[in-house]
Simulated scan of single mutants.
Amino acid sequence: MSADKTAVVILAAGSSSRLGYAKQLVHFRGKMLLQHSIDAASHFQFCSNTVVVGARAHEILEHTELKIFSAVINEDWEEGMASSIRLGLKHAIDKVKDLEHIIVLLADQPFVNVQVIENLIAKHIESKSDATFCEYNGVVGVPAIFSKTNFKALEQLTADQGAKKLLKDQNFKYNTVKFDQGTIDVDTAEDVMRLKQLE
């Protein structure tokens, strides 16, 4: 698994409707949540680095240091997460024709860091499976890595389907790596309060 054939996509297009303002810009330990994901992924110098924004795109980008990342605006963000996955993957493939892997991150998991991504990559290399997900509190989810054998399935996601839809396919082979703090994300004001207590 080489960095020059691996892309990373950060999904940051949601409207944060339950919170009432952009959760991507919630501060935690001196920086905004989206910035945490960008900074962690920038450590690796992947061949393609994309942030998919949608709702409140200009506000979010105004306050974000993209570093090595390119931002693409998902005009169809109201469709749900699937549209951002499709757009991010298309942007990566357009840039790197022989792309072999894509890593998907979210903008609201404050404890995603370099070590979490390294653990995910190591497990994916070791297992040689088609996909590797993080697992937290019995839940399988992102961050995740997908090999090119899954690109077509990702391109066919619709509505608010995340990549976890693939898990329902009995022929889908995947592995997981523990990420206990992956349970901590931000959707509501109560989530923000709990996060502040962890600073």
Rank of each mutant, 00 (worst) to 15 (best):
P110C: 11
D94T: 10
T158F: 11
A131E: 01
G182R: 00
E135Q: 05
I125D: 05
K95Q: 15
F111W: 03
F146C: 02
L167I: 14
K148D: 12
K173W: 03
D130P: 10
D98P: 03
S127F: 02
F111C: 01
Y174E: 08
D130H: 08
V114G: 00
I184A: 03
F172T: 01
L154E: 05
S129P: 00
V116C: 06
A107P: 00
E135S: 06
D108S: 14
A159K: 13
Q115F: 09
D94E: 12
D185G: 05
I121N: 04
A189Q: 09
K165L: 14
K123N: 07
A144I: 07
K164A: 11
T132D: 07
L154D: 03
N175P: 00
V104K: 08
V142P: 09
I102P: 13
F133Y: 10
K165G: 00
A163N: 07
D130T: 08
S127L: 07
K152Q: 15
Y136P: 06
V177M: 11
D180W: 01
D169G: 03
Y136E: 07
D94H: 12
F111R: 01
K165N: 09
N175D: 15
F111M: 02
F179M: 04
N175E: 15
A189P: 00
F172W: 01
G141V: 04
D94V: 04
N119R: 11
I145R: 04
P143R: 02
